[in-house]
């Protein structure tokens, strides 16, 4: 028995529905104003995207649910979801959408918003770092292979400085600096 005056904390049980006031009604417009987001509202919730996705079965939040969440304004949950980063970018969902919603493109938009808010997997930041530091994703390690085939030893035409310069002043640059 609990003694009088000694109160316990209420158990942490979430039984309340999402209150309308918690919905971010601007999220939909935000996505629609981003590249390839215009068709978002045409979604009629048929879940073809989910049927078409080769890996939706391992997603806790399915592709069509993400799209519905964007439309309703459950912003935080979408942007913090691990699913958007698991997207194969194979465009099967987008290709099959009967209403022309550019599902994969919209997930790219979400990943950009998530990145802006610091919710980005470290491995992706590492790739950004690679790009900024080396100016390319892959560097030639076995130049003898190239020479065997009469190819120039170095990557032809590729300007590593250009990548460093351009991305240094965009989000990638800020991200990499912040990560240091």
């Amino acid at each position: 028995m609990t003694e009088i005056g000694e109160k316990k904390e209420l158990p942490d049980v979430f039984i309340d529905p999402i209150d309308m006031s918690e919905l971010d009604r601007g999220f939909r417009k935000e996505i629609q104003s981003m590249p390839n987001g215009e068709e978002l509202s045409a979604c009629f919730a048929c879940s073809t995207c989910t049927s078409a996705c080769p890996i939706a079965n391992i997603w806790e939040i399915k592709p069509h649910q993400l799209i519905r969440m964007i439309i309703l304004g459950i912003r935080e949950k979408v942007l913090s979801s691990k699913e958007i980063w698991l997207c194969l970018t194979c465009f099967e969902c987008q290709e099959r959408c009967p209403q022309g919603v550019r599902v994969t493109d919209i997930f790219f938009d979400c990943k950009n918003l998530a990145t802006e808010e610091g919710m980005i997997p470290a491995s992706i930041v590492a790739l950004g770092k690679e790009l900024i530091e080396k100016g390319q994703l892959y560097t030639v390690t076995a130049d003898w292979e190239r020479e065997d085939l009469d190819l120039e030893p170095d990557v032809p035409g590729l300007s590593t400085d250009a990548v460093k310069r351009v991305l240094g002043s965009t989000r990638t640059g800020r991200l990499v600096k912040g990560g240091r």
């Binding site: 048929c46 879940s47 073809t48 049927s51 099967e92």
Partner: peptide
């Protein structure tokens, strides 16, 4: 519905 036909809401793929 009552006759036991199975209704699945979704579109097929693959």
């Amino acid at each position: 519905r009552e006759s036991g036909v199975q209704f699945v809401r979704g579109f097929p793929s693959d």
